[in-house]
Nucleic acid binder design. Structure first.
Lengths: 216, 216
DNA sequence: TAGATTTTTGTATGCTCATACAAGATTCTA
DNA sequence: TAGAATCTTGTATGAGCATACAAAAATCTA
């Protein structure tokens, strides 16, 4: 058994391959449809392999959710780095939460099924909370210098709920497109800030710019 | 077989009992935990009985979702009937979507699991759409005379998404109470309408009052 | 290359659950 | 009350699945 010191390389490779396969299966079939057999088939391996590299299905699942969150986060962080004004940072956050190819019904539905599971399984809930906290912290870094604590809390909760609600609608009714969703979020945001505040956010010299949070 | 004309009474009684039991099980254990055996036990009957009164589990499930929606709807309709001003109608709609005893984590989580299923099963999606359409139609009956078509569409989508998003947060993080949620929705709504418009809504003589829709 | 170690395969086991059904209990009817 | 119709029970069947595992294949080591 190679446990200490020099780790055998193939183990890490297989684990990543399997998690990536699990991710693809998840996006297509949701949490329900993500069976061991399907994951292995997707990865081009034999059905028993999963039990060799993972303690159980839960381990694959947590790995998969983390993998997914990391992908989304990297995108948002790249967009944030390129943003010059606070308004651009806001666009980065909102657009990053509606990835161009990913705002589809099956993906929305898959994501919602994780939220449903989080209501029952405390470990999933923790993963989701980490994700959410970062979203709100990013929003806070935009609104922070402008709003007092109460209004900041309110505004970031409302925007976060709006994002979630639109994903939910996508899953249930699929009657909304990506651009429409983004437009709606900005309609909501513009109504939450005054004209003077919006001008400030667009100017890029409004107030001190806080660093984005890096968690996980 | 008593099929035509005078229906045997007991059949209807049992079906309602079983659906009510299914509803209770659903609220406590979610869609996953709602097994045939548990439903029958909850109803105080033998495990085989379900197959006698229903064609399959799906039939119970659809019945249960309809039952749930009807309960919520009756509440909103009663509140709407008592409302004197447009603003009061708005309060009726929003508060009706956060039933006092029902804004709990397990119930939120159960409801989210139905939404997740709706992403996969077209029949569930239809049920959810009926529900949603009525919500938006109720909102439209408040905003209708005041907003043009585009703004009406936007506002009702945003408010609906906000409601959904707060339920989702309840399921995932459970870091928000009923009163807080209602306050947040009204913060959002107040920012969507101008001061002049809000005054109009509160006056009760703002514009023609449309009848609430009665579907299903 | 022989033998040890690691990796992969395919299948077996056991669990949960929906559904079917035979047989028993109850209620109705004449 | 006899017999028919209706209702209820308990269990059997089989599907779908996670997980365990024996054995085969591949790779490493000396």
């Amino acid at each position: 058994m190679a446990t200490q010191g020099k780790r055998t390389r193939i183990e890490d490779i297989r684990r990543v391959e399997l998690i990536a396969a699990a991710h693809r299966v998840f996006l297509e079939h949701g949490l329900q449809g993500m069976t061991s057999a399907r994951i292995c088939r997707e990865a081009g391996m034999s059905p028993g392999i999963l039990a060799y590299y993972f303690k159980g299905k839960d381990e694959v699942l947590f790995g998969m959710v983390r993998y997914n969150n990391r992908l989304l986060m990297e995108d948002v962080i790249a967009r944030l780095a390129a943003a010059q004004t606070h308004w651009a940072r806001l666009e980065a956050i909102v657009e990053g939460n509606f990835p161009a190819q990913a705002f589809t019904r099956p993906i929305a539905s898959a994501w919602i099924s994780v939220c449903a599971e989080a209501g029952v399984n405390e470990q999933y809930a923790r993963l989701q909370r980490v994700f959410h906290r970062r979203l709100r912290s990013n929003l806070a870094s935009v609104f922070g210098g402008m709003f007092d604590a109460v209004r900041l809390q309110e505004a970031s909760l409302i925007v976060a709920a709006l994002l979630d609600g639109l994903w939910l609608r996508k899953a249930v009714a699929d009657d909304i497109g990506r651009d429409e969703a983004i437009t709606l979020v900005f309609t909501g945001i513009r109504s939450l800030v005054s004209d003077k505040e919006e001008k400030l956010l667009r100017s890029g010299r409004g107030h001190k710019r806080a660093a984005p949070r890096r968690q996980q």
